[in-house]
């Protein structure tokens, strides 16, 4: 099936209906296997079992960043190629990316409690994730403010691109800000080499998270397409009354 076929929302809907159950099933399977492997992974000699929060925390961060990546590609699709599904993809990705970022923040905070003795430390990595979360909130606020999808799509695309350009700069600034104020006693995750007994479950969990992301993303895109159809049908109803 060529990409151009997918431009047709109806085709896309049939495809989603066919793919979604498989995708959801695969997600559940990989999650089950991943959690099994996580349970088998060794405890940290200092942190004990709490280290296992990492298996949620790290994939959460990755997927949070990937969410913005999806939005950036979608933004290019909206602005450059004017692909009819691009805006739908971008809009659907925003709350999901925000949710993964939120998971990363919450787990980071819970992990920090036994490690630092407090729920929150302004450590460079965690702070960068927080800033990403703030950017996501701005994006959600933008979608929330405009009811008309035609009006919000361009604005959201521009904001996504501006964010994509700015994220590295923000990351750099936060790192610099953090080292300026004496680096807090942060435990560096991993270091030079991660043992395979940790790395393999981590990668499996990352795969599970990625599958979950796309399952949710496809479902959200389908919902958004249907929502827009309902909207245009109701507008037609108003016109022909």
């Amino acid at each position: 099936m060529a990409v151009i076929d997918l431009a047709n929302p109806t085709r896309f809907l049939t495809l989603v209906d066919r793919v979604l159950p498989w995708l959801a099933g695969a997600t559940a399977l990989v999650f089950a296997y991943g959690l099994y492997r996580v349970a088998g992974a060794p405890d940290d000699y200092q942190q004990g079992a709490t280290v296992k929060i990492m298996f949620l925390h790290v994939p959460g961060a990755w997927l949070g960043m990937m969410g913005w990546g999806v939005m950036t590609v979608a933004a290019l699709g909206t602005l450059v190629w004017r692909h009819p599904l691009a805006d739908v993809a971008g809009k659907a990705a925003a709350p999901i990316g925000a949710a993964f970022t939120f998971i990363c923040l919450v787990t980071g905070s819970l992990w920090g409690r036994p490690m630092w003795g407090t729920y929150w430390v302004w450590d460079a990595r965690l702070t960068s994730v927080l800033v990403l979360f703030l950017l996501y909130l701005g994006m959600l606020a933008l979608y929330w403010t405009a009811e008309d999808p035609n009006r919000s799509s361009r604005a959201a695309a521009i904001l996504a691109l501006v964010g994509a350009v700015n994220i590295p700069i923000i990351k750099f600034s936060v790192d610099w800000w953090n080292t300026l104020h004496q680096p807090a006693s942060v435990v560096r995750m991993g270091g030079t080499a991660i043992d395979t007994s940790i790395l393999v479950p981590l990668l499996i969990m990352a795969l599970a998270f990625t599958l979950l992301f796309f399952t949710l993303h496809f479902a959200a895109m389908r919902n958004e397409i249907l929502r827009r159809r309902v909207r245009s049908m109701r507008m037609m109803q108003a016109q022909h009354a």
């Binding site: 407090t118 430390v121 302004w122 702070t127 800000w177 953090n178 300026l180 104020h181 807090a184």
Partner: peptide, 9 residues
């Protein structure tokens, strides 16, 4: 705020 005043807890 912490970006302005620093992360000193």
């Amino acid at each position: 705020t912490p970006f302005a005043v620093g992360p000193d807890l």
